[in-house]
């Protein structure tokens, strides 16, 4: 029997999940929510995490009915992410490790998303679209690595959505992306936005600055509603993502797609991707907000796979890093 705790806090969510032989026993999470118009800054986010990390740990252990002495390993997010929040969680992980003499496992956050989504959906060897607040990548597995075929050449898709929500002064509760999605459902009129795809790469900064310059004026003149603008933004950026995912599928000869990362729970993105897959007789795998959005169980899941291969992280190597590319990790746990 293997019990793994996973601890995640690389951005504005902090979560702790407990897995027993790969089965999720508990997975509580808290989100640092800022007022409309404001983003989250690293130091404030770290304070938020410091304030509630022990409470969440208690909750996770209680719900799982597990005590620390039964735990086989503590997986924590090594990166990528924001330094101060990453450090906060790693510090707690290291302290628990020393107090209870439990091995540590440093996990790449993106690998956590991919492995959690693979475990939940049963997708075997899909082309992966990883879309979150800090990252946008089109990934496929080949010879022991998750290789990046396409990515954003500037800002991440989630960052583009969050910043647009700030222009419109939308609420950040439960998340800016969710509120854009709800408004977009009622939008009808498509505003032509810059569309920027380079092979399998995408760019969003042009769209954002286009909207920054014009959005408020268009609203004032009554030409477009907030709903229309949300709709136009989603239709454009999701079309770009589906297009580059399809390009990677054609290139790799793959017929399955897996969407993961926080933006991945957007229903419109999922439905567009599903239509694309149907048009090429392929299949879409996606999960809901419990697993798409950053959580502790995903770190535990990747940690579990690593632990089974005998991988642990020594105290001296348990540092964190803001930059940690998905293709830096040797995927020893896959045999294909």
């Amino acid at each position: 029997m293997t019990i793994i705790i996973g601890m995640e806090g690389s951005a504005n969510k902090i979560g702790i999940g407990i897995l027993k032989n790969g089965e999720i026993l508990s997975n509580p999470r808290k989100t640092y929510i800022t007022p409309p118009g404001l983003g989250f800054i690293p130091s404030e986010t770290a304070k938020h995490h410091q304030g509630c990390v022990l409470e969440i740990l208690d909750e996770a252990l209680r719900e799982a009915n597990v005590s620390l002495k039964e735990v086989d390993a503590i997986a924590f997010t090594k990166g990528p992410g924001m330094a101060a929040p990453l450090l906060t969680v790693a510090l707690v992980a290291r302290t628990l490790s020393l107090m209870w003499n439990i091995p540590l496992i440093g996990v790449n956050h993106c690998i956590g998303h991919i492995e959690m989504a693979r475990a939940i959906t049963g997708a075997n060897n899909p082309t992966v679209l990883y879309v979150s607040g800090g990252n946008t990548q089109v990934i496929a597995y080949l010879e022991k690595k998750y290789r990046i075929f396409g990515e954003t050449i500037d800002i991440a898709v989630g960052n583009c959505l969050d910043r647009f929500a700030r222009i419109l002064m939308l609420s950040n509760d439960p998340s800016p992306g969710y509120n854009i999605e709800k408004l977009a459902e009622k939008g009808k009129k498509l505003l032509t936005l810059p569309y920027c795809v380079k092979g399998m790469d995408v760019s969003f900064s042009g769209i954002l600055s286009f909207l920054e310059e014009r959005a408020n004026n268009l609203l004032k003149k009554g030409e477009y509603t907030k709903e229309d603008l949300c709709f136009s933004l989603q239709e454009t950026i999701f079309a770009m993502l589906v297009e580059t995912t399809e390009r990677a599928m054609a290139h790799c000869g793959s017929s399955e797609v897996l969407i993961c990362g926080g933006v991945g729970c957007n229903k419109r993105l999922q439905s567009m991707m599903n239509t694309m897959c149907e048009e090429r007789c392929g299949r879409l795998y996606a999960t809901d907000e419990r697993f798409c959005i950053d959580n502790g169980a995903m770190i535990a899941q990747a940690g579990y796979l690593m632990f089974k291969c005998g991988i642990t992280t020594s105290l001296k190597d348990s540092w964190v890093t803001q930059r940690f590319r998905t293709d830096d990790v040797l995927v020893t746990w896959r045999d294909d």
Partner: peptide, 13 residues
């Protein structure tokens, strides 16, 4: 026709 995307955008692209 890529029906996943808005018809105007699809036509243009």
């Amino acid at each position: 026709k890529k029906t996943y995307r808005h018809p105007d955008l699809d036509d243009y692209l």
